[in-house]
Nucleic acid binder design. Structure first.
Lengths: 124, 124
DNA sequence: CATTGCTTTAGAGTGCGCTCGAACGTGTAG
DNA sequence: CTACACGTTCGAGCGCACTCTAAAGCAATG
């Protein structure tokens, strides 16, 4: 029998607040979180893994609307695997571009820092 | 005598809308944009360079409040160069971390894609 | 069996970064 | 002179992603 978690535990593990976890469930990012007899949520290991993946999508700037699309495909079962892969590959490209752009911007920032250093030297 | 630009030209060059350019000026990110006799903005080359740098800060997720701080230091002249450098160095660290995080997340996304591919193979 | 602290829901509120609209002035082509 | 495109200001509105509140129920401790 696999471990179960309360909303607070999931909150601590993932860093999302309980509010955000309920919100994600409400908008359909988390499907079918189980409940105990009194209606309290009990998260399974699989929920945790899914939430962790959602966090990665969010950190790579996937909009919630797209995360929702992806979640919807997921809950439709294995018939949608190809479609999910396509969606992820499109996102992969965007992330790759983000990294390239950040690197370019980082260079410019570093140049500016170097420029400031030079100006500081002059004034000694 | 250096070239001057209308707000529409700056908009086309930078990709910011005229609305956004006015907004940035209003909140103090753009200091002292010149005007012609009838009150129309005329941007100089130096304004353009500054706007481009602001865009880089924005693309690297610097919040507007921090961009404002930086702008304010800038308009106080060369006495603030050291402070500006410090601010940029802090930001540089954040950007470096962003890149590392994105790379890690990209890996996980790629693993998921590979996993989907494997599942697709199974079903042939 | 009372207190304290956790859970639930629905719905309202917030902060960020724009984005737009209204009302009005300017510049230029026919 | 008349369109009509482009400029101005001020303030309101918007989309996103949470974030919080209120009112109520459940759980654990002394």
């Amino acid at each position: 029998m696999s471990k179960q978690f309360t909303i607070q535990q999931i909150s601590q593990i993932t860093g999302l607040t309980a509010h955000t976890l309920r919100y994600y469930e409400k908008i359909g990012l988390l499907d079918g979180v189980a409940r105990n007899e009194s209606g309290y949520r009990k998260y399974r290991e699989s929920d945790l893994l899914w939430i962790d993946f959602l966090i990665r999508l969010r950190e790579t700037r996937m909009p919630i609307s797209e995360m929702k699309q992806f979640s919807d495909l997921r809950s439709q079962g294995k018939a949608t695997i190809k479609e999910r892969r396509t969606l992820l590959e499109r996102h992969q490209n965007k992330v790759t571009k983000q990294i390239a752009d950040l690197k370019e911007n980082l260079l410019k920032i570093e140049h500016k820092i170097a420029h400031y250093k030079a100006l500081e030297e002059e004034d000694i």
